[in-house]
Amino acid sequence: MEQSVLHRTLRDIAAVLVVAIFMFPLFWWALTSIKPMYAIFNKDHVVVFDFVPTLINYAVVLLGWSRAEIAIESGSTFGVGGTSSYDSRQTILDSIIVSVGSTALTMVVAVLAAYALSRMTFRTRTGFLNWVLGQRFMPPIAIIVPLVLMYKAAGMRDTDNLFMGYVGLILIYALMNLPIAVLLMKSFFDDVPKDVDEAAMIDGATRWQTFRRIVLPMVRGGIAAAAVLCFIFAWTEFLLSLFLTTIIRTVPVKITTFVTSTGSEWGFISALGTAAVIPGFIFILLVQRHLVRGLTLGSLKE
């Protein structure tokens, strides 16, 4: 009994330690975001907790406060320079639209394609794996120049049309995510026994009804998992969004503009970085109740 208490305690300590190690950067980032300027830039010692917390960094990136307002609030103009605007409200909105849009598009196409790959036989079926591998071999930087030209020609780059900008990024993210999403969804469909489809067909369901009412609900967990992956990719992607659009600045691109010729605005960077965690967090919260294992449990013998 005593030993098992010791055992448990040690295990709990180990768990807390591991979580702490992984959470520390996030914690430090969040902490930095509420530090006033003097606490971030202190050449004498590292300021951990001995500062007066401020929300000024958030006011700038999330409410669009001007330099004058900052100066008044902080009572000093130290470090408030550069020409960039730090208002990131449009950026966050753009990132949400592009990430949600591309995830939705990817999942619709991937689910349909994966079902076909899992259940039907057709000639080009075997080419699929090559497509996935080929796409993985090829880093985006290798094709960025032709892509830029194509986007230009298609009117999705160097345009004032915000809508075209969204379409452009949604399309390229969907394309980047598709192979892996299809591969993932195919493995989830493969886990649903074909007997279930056949039973539904004998019960009188058409192919579409079988898909929609029987198989799709059984891969709910897979859809949630794949959607999270796609969302995270789109939310954090930098290169394509930097090159393929001029009108949209997604969060990762926007943050780079906080590194200016007169210094890096660590306060604003950390505020936007911390704020940027939240939409992804909400998205995962929304889908995580579907992320339960064993949805097909009970369909089969154990």
Partner: peptide
């Protein structure tokens, strides 16, 4: 069917 093929959901 041998493995029942029930609709698990």
């Amino acid at each position: 069917f041998q493995n029942y093929a029930l609709y698990a959901h």
